[in-house]
Design a protein around this nucleic acid. Structure first.
Length: 586
RNA sequence: GAUUCCGUAGCUCAGCCGGUAGAGCAUAACACUUUUAAUGUUGGGGUCCUGGGUUCGAAUCCCAGCGGGAUCACCA
């Protein structure tokens, strides 16, 4: 282009913060409008076919694909004069399309092909096509385009991921930070990751189906809670203005679901987000999804069988078989699972019998095993430390660990026959806990005592000790039937089901630190001190994002640099005279 | 929170013992009517994360900060 149009120059002046490719796309956008083409049409575009379906079924049934309508993003283009190939990506996959100039431009006017398709469309643009499916000379199923419609112009260039014939990826979009912060880009250019989220959805929906089939009902309980109960963890704190009171984001929903059992439901369950104000790593996100279910007149023995049936159902729904490959291990979710008591598991993997030890003996055992402990830890916590350090990693196939010490489990019923233990199990798979269940404590007097013991632990400095919940105790005093309850960490279950080893890969939007925010650029502030609006982006480009930064600079140097920038950026805007520039600094 | 590695073009990455920036893809122009990691020719594109320090000179060396990854600690 010999000369910028006024418009192009204006775009350029306003877009100095943009990359070259972004500026070009904005110019293409404007040229489309000048040609009378709306780059963002309002009308619905009804598709009749999908990429994957065409690839699967065209060859066995070619006649049904002689008139297809598809929509999606242009992902690659191979232009050869008056004919071109492009790849269109829809929600199901990619399909090659073939465009021939004289087919999409049957008349004299070849603008749609020569200008719109070849010059003004880019990778990432949404288009709709109408045409027929055929086989190219090299045997690839393709759509011969008869009609081309622009559905949405993309202004930022997508990363281009190249794949060769063997499926090797060459210029992958792999930076985890960018992938998690811009999941929309990740899933566009790495569509294979969509499978993780499709499976995630299947895990939840198949589990919901299973529960509903049993006649249990799905409920919703408060996320904002005046007392955070039901688990041991530090909460997020918030404030309600009208009530002028502190509220907590729930760390668990257990105590509310039990209130509903008191209310007379036989089975209630809730899928939902829980919030814990603790560390983040590859198995922890501050908000995570769990499912909890409570069933009246059952105990934890019954619950084990239920979990086996449920997880087998889920695994079959996701994989077709009850077996899933996780890293090196092939994990089989068919029940019954191995059962091992907490004490027996420690005996098995360390050779030490801790069942009769007091707190002092446990402390010595931890020291002997080289396990770090501190003074706030009670007997239950010490046993848990030994278990975590020595046993957990060995539990690869689904294994129930049962009968926990009473000190670490204030909401579970005392064991029917073993003193000092509670009726509890946790399910371990691939070395990680994924489920936790009790015969729920329904003796209100016992429950009050246990919560009071937690208060003592809190007094010793345990920030995760449970809080007293008087309303929950009141509910128990009215009477809760014998009940078994279960919680499953959905994110971790999905990690297992999709063979992922970080939680970030199974969350669409994992928690991240906020992006560094560019200082707010306020054109108005610059205009107020006399800077012409079209020069503000130039000052920004020179590194002056606020009036204060500008005023701190050397006026003569700024004046000289403005001229330099004008030349460098080939701007066709009027250079302010020196006196005007000097006036900015008074 | 601790340790450690990383931050260079839209993306993936080189850049040595300090001398003012490179490749592939993407992008622009031209050619090309069945290509497919299309091809050929010629271009353009950079706050080398930020701020200090050392130096005649810093993407490079040193310090601090910001962001991310990995491992550990806490937790589910």
């Amino acid at each position: 282009m010999v000369k910028f149009s006024i418009f192009a120059s204006l775009i350029k002046a306003m877009s100095i913060a943009l990359s070259e490719q972004e500026i070009l796309r904005r110019e293409s956008l404007q040229q489309l409008r000048e040609l009378g083409i709306n780059p963002y049409p309002a009308e619905a575009f009804n598709v009749t076919a999908f990429a994957q379906d065409i690839k699967d079924n065209f060859e066995s049934n070619p006649d049904t694909y002689q008139n297809v309508v598809l929509a999606g993003r242009i992902m690659t283009r191979r232009i050869m004069g008056s004919a071109s190939f492009a790849e269109l990506q829809d929600s199901t996959g990619r399909l090659q399309v073939y465009l021939k100039r004289d087919d999409i431009c049957p008349g004299e006017d070849k603008t749609l092909y020569n200008t719109v398709f070849k010059k003004l469309l880019d990778i990432g643009d949404y288009i709709g096509i109408k045409g027929y499916v055929f086989l190219t000379q090299t045997g690839e199923i393709s759509v011969h385009v008869r009609e081309l419609i622009i559905l949405s112009k993309s202004l930022k260039p997508l990363p281009v991921v190249k794949r060769d014939e063997e499926g090797n990826i060459h210029d992958g979009f792999t930076d985890p930070e960018l992938r998690y912060r811009q999941r929309y880009v990740d899933l566009t250019v790495n569509p294979e990751y969509k499978q993780i989220f499709i499976k995630r959805s299947k895990v939840i929906s198949s589990m919901r189906d299973y529960f509903n089939t049993q006649g249990w009902i799905e409920v919703e309980t408060p996320i904002l809670q005046p007392v955070h109960g039901g688990a041991a963890a530090r909460p997020f704190i918030t404030h309600h203005n009208t009530l002028d009171m502190q509220l907590y984001l729930r760390i668990a929903n257990e105590l509310y679901l039990k209130r509903l059992i008191v209310a007379g439901f036989d089975g209630v369950y809730e899928f939902g987000k829980m919030f814990r104000n603790e560390g983040m790593d590859r198995t922890h996100n501050p908000e995570f999804t769990s499912v909890e279910i409570y069933v009246a007149y059952k105990d934890y023995i019954w619950m084990m069988a239920m979990v086996e049936a449920c997880l087998e159902h889920v695994t079959r729904a996701v994989h077709g078989i009850p077996v899933v490959q996780v890293g090196e291990n092939e994990i089989n979710f068919e029940g019954p699972y191995t059962k091992l008591s907490m004490y027996d598991s420690i005996l098995k993997y360390t050779g030490i019998d801790v069942s009769a030890m007091d707190e002092a003996a446990l402390r010595k055992t931890c020291a002997d095993l080289g396990i770090e402990i501190d003074d706030t830890m009670g007997k239950g916590k010490l046993i848990d430390e030994i278990f975590s350090a020595k046993v957990e990693a060995n539990l690869i196939q689904p294994t129930y660990i049962t009968d926990y010490p009473i000190e670490m489990t204030p909401l579970a019923k005392k064991h029917r026959s073993k003193d000092g233990l509670v009726e509890r199990f946790e399910l371990f798979v691939n070395g990680k806990e994924i489920a936790n269940a009790y015969s729920e404590l329904n003796d209100p007097i016992d429950q009050r005592q246990r919560l009071e013991e937690q208060l003592i632990l809190a007094g010793r400095g345990d920030q995760e000790a449970m809080a007293m919940d008087d309303d929950f105790l009141r509910a128990l005093e009215y009477g809760m039937p014998p009940t078994s309850g279960l919680g499953i960490g959905i994110d971790r279950l999905v990690m297992l089901m999709t063979n992922q080893h970080t939680i970030q890969e199974v969350l669409f939007f994992p928690q991240m630190r906020p992006e560094k925010k560019a200082k707010v650029v306020t054109t108005d502030d610059f205009v107020k001190i006399g800077v012409p609006a079209e020069w503000v982006p130039v000052l920004n480009k020179m590194g002056f994002n606020t009036v204060e930064e500008l005023k701190a600079a050397n006026p003569n140097k700024v004046f000289n640099d403005l001229g330099g920038m004008r030349k460098k950026l080939k701007l066709e805007i009027t250079m302010p005279v020196k006196d005007v520039v000097m006036a900015w600094f008074v």
